[in-house]
Simulated assay, not measured.
Amino acid sequence: MGTIATSFKAKKVHLINERYQIQEKLGEGSFGVVFNGLDTKKNERVAIKLEVRTGSLLAKEWHTYKLLRNAVGFPKVRWFGQIMPFYDVIVMDLLGKNLGELFRECGNRFSIKTVLILADQMISRLEYLHNMNIVHRDIKPENFVMGLGNTRNTLYLVDFGLSKRFRDSYTNQHISFRDGKNLTGTARYASINTHQGIEATRRDELESVGYVMIYFLRGSLPWQGITKKLCKKQRHTKIGEIKRDMKLDDLCRQCPKELIRYISYCRNLEFTEKPDYTSLRQMFRDLLKNLGHEYNYDYEWSEKGSGNSYLSTFPCNYNKDVVTWL
């Protein structure tokens, strides 16, 4: 995927859609590269994601973002199209750091207060997404991102390249049970059912949030570090076996008992069953209050003074006719 970024070096290219300038590379995933950019007409920072047009993942992601455009905690898409002519491009609101980055900056451990406030928002994002008949299918810290400026306290859910409809939006007919599927998403946070080849639905996303919470509280998960001598499929199988065989008391050691209740609840949901999002959020809000904390967005990184403003002062190399690629 690095060839996308490399192919633009030392080139001069017309502005995307005559207004969006690509600047520094911010990161890349399995399917695309994300750049810091500038909306030259509004003089606002944007994120620009490029993908080689070998599939329809970015177009699919664009359609998902359109469905979510009026919701809190989902970035707004400003433009989608093609350039050069082999790349799909999506331009959206620029956000801050993802939770994986912030976790590492905080010494691979979040406080219980930070985790509970994040959990409340993670569950809310999934509730809205599921109400729109979509499952994300790759819940992990890197796909939860903090906002910038006035939205710096808001948690965003991003990257819908693997998302899928689990229910018909007109008939409300749920997809049928299927097994024998390959694991989709990130094995570290995948549900036991997903490891067993069962189609992912709402219950599996919430179970994944539980593993993210445990990871943040403990600093690691017991199935990390599976030997690299195993092939990918063997590693996935081994991780699934550890998740299935480990007692929840051991998995949630050093975590509040509410995590045991949460994971147990998610694992016992039926394939088509709607989770009780409200009760799950309330359980964690009650725990926050009982521990003597306020829901005031005083995150771990806020206390350390790192903030989320690291993208707010990028230099602009704007020329109305061309972009100099860095």
Rank of each mutant, 00 (worst) to 15 (best):
Lys232Gln: 14
Asp249Ser: 11
Leu259Gln: 02
Met246Gln: 02
Tyr215Gln: 05
Thr227Pro: 08
Lys247Ser: 08
Lys257Gly: 15
His236Lys: 01
Lys229Asp: 15
Glu207Gln: 09
Leu206Phe: 12
Asp276Glu: 09
Leu217Gln: 00
Thr227Trp: 03
Ile260Ser: 06
Lys243Ala: 04
Lys233Gly: 09
Glu207Val: 09
Ile242Gln: 07
Thr237Lys: 14
Asp249Ala: 01
Leu230Asp: 05
Lys243Ser: 09
Thr201Asp: 06
Gly240Lys: 13
His236Ala: 03
Ile198Thr: 05
Glu258Ile: 05
Glu207Ala: 03
Lys233Leu: 00
Ile242Met: 14
Asn268Gln: 13
Met246Leu: 00
Arg203Glu: 07
Arg235Ser: 10
Ile260Asp: 07
Trp223Asn: 09
Trp223Leu: 13
Lys228His: 08
Tyr262Pro: 13
Arg218Gln: 14
Phe271Asn: 01
Leu217Met: 15
Glu258Met: 00
Pro256Tyr: 12
Ile226Leu: 07
Lys228Tyr: 06
Thr278Pro: 04
Leu248Ser: 02
Thr201Phe: 04
Tyr262Cys: 02
Arg261Asp: 04
Met246Cys: 06
Ser208Gly: 10
Tyr211Glu: 02
Cys255Arg: 12
Phe271Arg: 05
Lys243Pro: 06
Cys255Gln: 14
Pro275Val: 04
Gly197Asp: 12
Cys255Leu: 13
Ser264Tyr: 09
Arg202His: 10
Tyr262Thr: 10
Gly210Tyr: 00
Ile260Val: 15
Glu270Met: 06
Arg253Gly: 09
Arg261Ser: 02
Lys274Tyr: 06
Asp250Phe: 02
Glu258Ser: 07
Ile263Leu: 15
Arg244Glu: 12
Ile260Thr: 08
Ile226Arg: 07
Thr237Gln: 08
Cys231Ala: 13
Val209Asp: 00
Ser220Pro: 05
Met246Trp: 04
Gly197Ala: 07
Val212Gln: 02
Ile260Arg: 12
Gly197Lys: 01
Gly197His: 03
Lys247Trp: 04
Ala200Ser: 15
Arg253Ser: 01
Tyr265Met: 12
Val212Leu: 01
Leu206Glu: 01
Cys252Gln: 10
Arg261Ala: 07
Cys252Gly: 03
Arg261Trp: 09
Glu199Gln: 06
Gln224Phe: 01
Val209Ile: 15
Glu199Thr: 01
